[in-house]
Amino acid sequence: MPQELLKEQWPNAIDVITIGATSQEGGTRDRAIKVGGQNGLPYLFEESDMPNKPVIAMEVFDIEPVDWPDTLKKPYGDVLSNPVEWAKKCETEFKADLIALRLAGTHPDAGNKSESDAVKLVKDIIANVKIPLIILGSNDEEKDNLILPKCAEVTKGEKCLIGDAAQKNYKTLTAACLAYGHNIIAESPIDINIAKQLNILITEMGLPSDRIIINPTVGALGYGLEYAYSIMERGRIAALGGDKMLAQPFICFVGQEAWRAKEAKASASEFPEWGKELERGILWEAVTASAFLQAGADILIMRHPKSIEIVKENINQLLQK
């Protein structure tokens, strides 16, 4: 007897967010990237559509990263001390969909770069790469509130994605995104209630819900992945069921979490039974990313080019109907 497939129909769809603007759209990017728009749980093409595929952003830092293991530094060669060259390499050689510029060096404890340094770098990157841009602060509230609005101002029209806004510090960044036409990342600490509340607070300031991306905060494989996964799943099911204040795409900072794991970066001489560190690190990042794709991730922020290659292949396989 043939079995009938049980299909779920959802009343709501995820908002579509556009990152980047071409010259016709008032920016200088060579393409705009759309994420979101799905009206069902991920990759269930029998019952729902997924008009925009998940994308991968590669991180570029304004200072040479200090905590990256050699296995991660190697593919980048000598560009890690030159953010503009680094970004160009991500665009041309590694085929990143977006650049995620992390202004870590503006943090008072990590170089304390000035706002003019940050603005100059943002302008240089905009001039030298053509893919859409994500701009991230240093996680120092005071400094971010000073620097990110300036970066938003000089990239007016480019429809960047800027973050992160948090429940205790969202007003300055929301106002800047509103004034200069950008999208915002709303961050919550693996807490769906706060994710929803923050989206309400941001929309109440006048920024439409289709300019918000949810950063649910994730953990790497072995470091809370399941917890983050279940939070994303719960949020997505509520959103598809009609909750407009959770119906935004997800961004997952996979690279920073995966490469912090001891299992990803410890050397083979330290733990011979764990096998080669290069494969281990790449797989740790790729497996973490693939799990979040299944939870509904729309933008993955990643680091190792080889992990990215594996995850891109995974995305293409998932999208085959």
Partner: peptide
């Protein structure tokens, strides 16, 4: 039927 947030009364009307 709804996910809690501090503004849950207002959130309900945003549907």
């Amino acid at each position: 039927k709804q996910i809690y947030c501090d503004s849950f009364l207002d959130a309900y009307k945003k549907k």
